[in-house]
Design a binder for these strands. Sequence first.
DNA 1: TTCACTGCAAACCTTTTGCAATTCT
DNA 2: AGAATTGCAAAAGGTTTGCAGTGAA
Lengths: 149, 149
Amino acid sequence: MHTYRDLALHILKDKGLRITKPRRLVVDVLDKAEQALSAYDIKDLLSEQGEKVDTVSIYRIIECLEANQLVHRILTTGKVRKCQLEHEDHCQLERSNHCHHLLICQKCGDIEEIHCLGLTTVIKDVEKESHFKVREHNLEFLGLCAKCA
Amino acid sequence: MHTYRDLALHILKDKGLRITKPRRLVVDVLDKAEQALSAYDIKDLLSEQGEKVDTVSIYRIIECLEANQLVHRILTTGKVRKCQLEHEDHCQLERSNHCHHLLICQKCGDIEEIHCLGLTTVIKDVEKESHFKVREHNLEFLGLCAKCA
DNA sequence: TTCACTGCAAACCTTTTGCAATTCT
DNA sequence: AGAATTGCAAAAGGTTTGCAGTGAA
């Protein structure tokens, strides 16, 4: 069973980063959460379970996770959420070019991650019409999830 | 000649809002700027031309302009930029449902605004595949503009 | 043992709030 | 005149920096 937790820590280790207690705790919290979390959200959740990690460290751990593509950042809130690693190869190269979009439920806050579909056509059209070279894109959808609709 | 400045102030007036000196100054700065600006960017630009508007007022003016769809907010930075009003009807109803996407140049910072093309197809696909009801979307492209490419 | 990482203190930057003074209409 | 808007002071919130101490490999 490869959980997010195991995979994430494994990927960090592979890159020569250290598996410290604060890092394990933060990854644990992210693994359990369905919603996106801010640094303070994480701090509060840890407090609830009797663990204390300094806010500054949480910021740095988030930064590290983001740099290694283990969390997504929600554009509109700046909060982060675990990436879906389950369906992916663990291979570094394979992971790097994946493109995800988020479906954010405005009612329950749950976030679903979908893979790029059809957007490449849009991008080609944009490039053709505007002579703009697209290198990155940010796309997120807000609405109602299957449960709340 | 309908400049952004004239149109924006006209729209505010139509809604019963007052055309004050600080509002005129901020709209002026936004009109001249090609890049997106933060509240402090605006404050600094005003200082350069010898005008002083309180930071808090700038925040409130931006809020007002955003509420009336006269500025776009860049997702990744929170900065704002004038909307393209030139090609649009001034009619309230016509303006309300327009959907824009931004092309942000990573080199010179210039921002181009394009109208929704092809994304509706993507949204329909997403809704079909995921049972998620899309109500809003955020999409911006980062890359190189025609000049910088 | 060594170097990456954490914790603490403090600074910094951004944004918000309350209220009195101002100024559009 | 009357109401909307601004400016000021202050607080609140979020994020970053520097450095000494700790702990993973």
